[in-house]
Amino acid sequence: MSYASTADMQTRFDQQDLVLLTERENSTPGEINIPVLEQALIDASAEINGYLAGRYTLPLSTVPTALVRICCDIARYFLSSDNAPEHIHTRYTDALKFLQAVNQGKVALGIDSQGDKAATNDTAFMESAGSVFARAKSQGFI
């Protein structure tokens, strides 16, 4: 199971960049090589699972949006191989830092340990003693 789809990659990144990143010897010129893109997403998801395995039951039943973005960034880095520009490398290292923080429990994904959406009981309630400066309480000053 991949945390992101080829459609997620196409939404996040430029079409021409994905064509260049997935181009192989047997590729159709000017088109994204979908099998290559899918393999990069599978590899990225496997790396993510390495960080999540100690904290969550895999596979996750609900995929948080943050993991979709992280998966796309990691897959893009994998597609760039040794020629990754600095901004792609930076996004990859940021993704790994995020995953390390999740692994250490410093960042929560918003799901419970079973991978389901977490239920919360910490809803904020506001109480008021009423208005301090109301016309009825002004006693002639307003």
Rank of each mutant, 00 (worst) to 15 (best):
F133M: 08
A53M: 10
I70N: 02
A4C: 07
R135P: 06
G110S: 10
I42W: 11
L21E: 00
F13P: 03
A46R: 03
R24D: 06
Q104D: 13
T6A: 06
N83W: 10
D8W: 06
A75W: 05
T28K: 00
D43N: 11
T120K: 08
M126S: 12
F13T: 00
S138M: 10
I111V: 14
L21W: 00
Y92I: 11
L20F: 03
A119T: 15
Q114M: 11
F125C: 10
F141A: 12
E38C: 02
L18K: 01
S5E: 06
P35Q: 02
L41S: 02
A108M: 04
G54V: 13
N103R: 14
L99E: 04
A84T: 05
S61T: 13
T6C: 01
A118Q: 15
L109V: 00
G115T: 12
D94W: 05
N121E: 07
R24C: 01
Q39D: 01
S27N: 09
M9R: 06
T28W: 01
I88V: 10
A44M: 08
S2M: 05
S27P: 08
L18A: 08
L58W: 12
N26M: 10
Y56G: 10
R76Y: 07
F78L: 15
I142F: 00
F78R: 14
